[in-house]
Structure formats: structure tokens, C-alpha cells
Design a protein around this nucleic acid. Structure first.
Lengths: 197, 197
DNA sequence: GTCTATACTCCGATAGAC
DNA sequence: GTCTATCGGAGTATAGAC
């Protein structure tokens, strides 16, 4: 396989870029920063990628496709709405663990990137994401598994933000595993923090 | 009062800068952007402010002082720990409503700004903030008002992030008032979203 | 696959006229 | 209080040698 080393170097550079984008934001990471971190000069990056935009595009697109594949599998599975919600939340925390940079980039820069034609797919997938989560919430309400007195759209925003914002403090390899965080999170979300004695 | 018009123009420019910082981030807002929005040229801004940093400094410092004054008043008041927590959450949502730009700037750029000596106070106040909230949480647990089986530090992060992240979707003057959002938020947080039938 | 060298644009900030 | 004019630095990207 003659492409093996080529692919490896490319992926290496992409991972370095992703880490920097995640730490400083896309716009505040220069191609010189990326090149410095990789031990090469900025011009050399253009042997591998068309532009800085191409790098972030590839990172986000690949990650999102993988995540949606997981979501689709869960939704199509044979579980109750609440069990599906549980599984989707756990898959999301697992994604924060396994693809930390990509999630952070998405959280910080997606709104800005989405203003360009090239990244129009971000808006489209965002809508799909919303439909999937609000759909599960409504099904769970209808099944009597969730409170019926809450505003589903507000609960959706609450759920979405509270899951993904964890990327700002969760560190892979830290004290708590992603699934332990998910367990505590789901306990708070479902049962609340008030004591019922 | 000869200073009246001077103060007004200065505050006007500061508000314009704050709005742009909030929308695009501090580093991605240029002094030319601010000047354009104000209908003047970039050089003219330096008649009012030393630097771009001075503008964001003044915005954040003023806002945080006001917010902490409110928190301190609540903590010192004669209420139960849970009532204090309720009041602090409501005051925070009110701050998102009344000082939307400042909260957004704080959410997006505080980590970056805090790396400079000039903004060291952000780190200090962040610690004070954490102590205040975790203190209230512990008191509420001790008073039997909150579940004792949860990790207080994790609940703190959860609480902090879920309140402030609302700045990303809440718009002053929208359908829901800040206090209505706070009410639903507290209901979810305290009682959970699961049905108990 | 990386380097040298460089083009062109935009950045924050300043000096001095009006 | 704003404008004209401009400086020095840093940004993305390119062309062509090695």
C-alpha cells in the first residue's frame, strides 16, 4: 500500500490542526500555528490541503457523519422512547470523549462557519438533529415516560446545550469516564436535584 | 454638566463594540468593524479608548461588579439555601436579559482574555463564583433540600454551564421572558423531566 | 514532502490637521 | 470629536527549487 504513509502524515496534520482549532478557535488559529506544531513551515501545509477551511471542513464532516450513523441506529432500534433518549445521551458523551476536538470546534465555530456556502450542510444537519431529539422527547411524553407539562422545544435546547457544553470541562482520561458523567447527568436530568423525602 | 454628551458618546461606542464582540468574538472583531458600525473611522475610536482591550475590559469589569453585588445581597439575605439558589439562578437569567452582550463575551472570550495579566481578575472572580455556588449547594444538601447522593462539584459545573449557555439562544424581547425561562429551568433542574405517576 | 521567498490583504495603533 | 495618512506586523496563500 503505497498510500499508507501519505494518509498517515495527512491525518497527523489534520489531528494537530483539530487540536489547535479546538483550543483557540478556528479563526484564531493561524496556518503558521499549525505548521509550527507540526514542525514544518506554513507553505508546506498546502501540499496536503487546499486551504485552512478544507481542514476544518474535513474534520467536521467526517465526525458528524459518524455521529449521525450512531443516532440513526439507536432511533431505529427496538427500545422505548426513554431508553432511546438514554442511549442517544450516552452516545453523545462518548463522542465528547472520543472526538473531543471536533465537538469543541463544532460548539465554538459552527455558527460562524455556517454563514459560508461551503458549510451549509451544518445548518441542514442541525435541523435533522433537532427533529431527532424533539421527536424522541415527544414520543417519550406520549408514552407517559416524561412530564407532559414542559415545553418540548425548551427542554430540547436545555438537553442539547447541557450535553454538549460538557466539552468545555470534560477531559478524556480524567477522573470520571464519559459514561460515568452520562449516568450522573441522566440522573439529574430525569430525577432532578431536589430531595424527595 | 459638560461631561454629559461626552459620556453618552463613549457609552454609545462601548455598546456598539460590545454587541460586535458578542456576535463575532473579541479577536474576530476589528476596530474598523466597530468604527464602521458607529459611522466613524477607526482612528477616531482612539480619541475615546486606549485600545481594543480597554473596551472589552471596561465592559466585563463593570458587568461583573454589578452581578456580584446582586449575588452578595442574595447570599446575605434571610432565606433558606434552596431559596437563595432559586434567587441566584433568577438573577443570572435576568443578567442574560439585561446584559446580553457582556454575558456572551464572557462566555466566549473569558478563557482567552484571562491569559493576560490585565484580565487576571477574571480568574479570581471565577473562583469566587465557584465558591459561592458550591457553598449554596452544600448548604442546601445539609439542610436536606437537595439530594445527598450527587457530586456537588459536578452539579456545580452542570448548573453553571446550563444557566449561562442560555445566552446562545435567549434573545431579549423574544417569546419567553427571562423569568419564565428561569421558572421552567428551575422546574427541570429540581424535579427532573421524568414523569412520576 | 518540505523549504525559500514572496505577494497581497488586513490588523491595531499613531501623528497631526481640521 | 473626527478625518487624513500611514507605519509595522501578521494573516492566507502561491511559485518554484530541492
Amino acid at each position: 500500500m503505497p498510500e499508507a504513509s501519505t494518509t498517515t502524515r495527512r491525518d497527523e496534520l489534520l489531528a494537530i490542526a483539530g487540536k489547535l482549532f479546538a483550543e483557540r478557535g478556528f479563526r484564531n488559529t493561524t496556518v503558521r500555528d499549525i505548521a509550527d506544531a507540526a514542525g514544518i513551515l506554513s507553505g508546506s501545509l498546502y501540499h496536503h490541503f487546499d486551504s485552512k477551511e478544507s481542514m476544518v471542513d474535513e474534520l467536521l464532516d467526517t465526525f458528524q457523519q459518524q455521529l449521525f450513523d450512531q443516532y440513526d441506529e439507536i432511533v431505529a432500534s427496538d427500545r422505548s422512547p426513554l431508553e432511546k433518549l438514554d442511549a442517544v445521551v450516552r452516545a453523545s458523551f462518548a463522542a465528547i470523549d472520543a472526538h473531543h476536538s471536533e465537538v469543541a470546534i463544532f460548539q465554538n465555530d459552527a455558527d460562524f462557519l455556517a454563514t459560508f456556502d461551503r458549510f451549509a450542510y451544518l445548518i441542514e444537519r442541525n435541523k435533522r438533529f433537532q427533529k431527532l431529539w424533539t421527536g424522541l422527547l415527544r414520543e417519550a411524553v406520549d408514552a407517559g415516560e416524561l412530564r407532559a407539562d414542559l415545553d418540548v422545544e425548551l427542554v430540547y435546547r436545555f438537553l442539547r446545550d447541557t450535553v454538549w457544553v460538557a466539552v468545555s470541562w470534560y477531559r478524556p482520561g480524567g477522573e470520571l469516564s464519559a459514561d460515568e458523567v452520562a449516568t450522573q447527568y441522566l440522573s439529574i436530568l430525569l430525577e432532578g436535584i431536589a430531595s424527595h423525602g
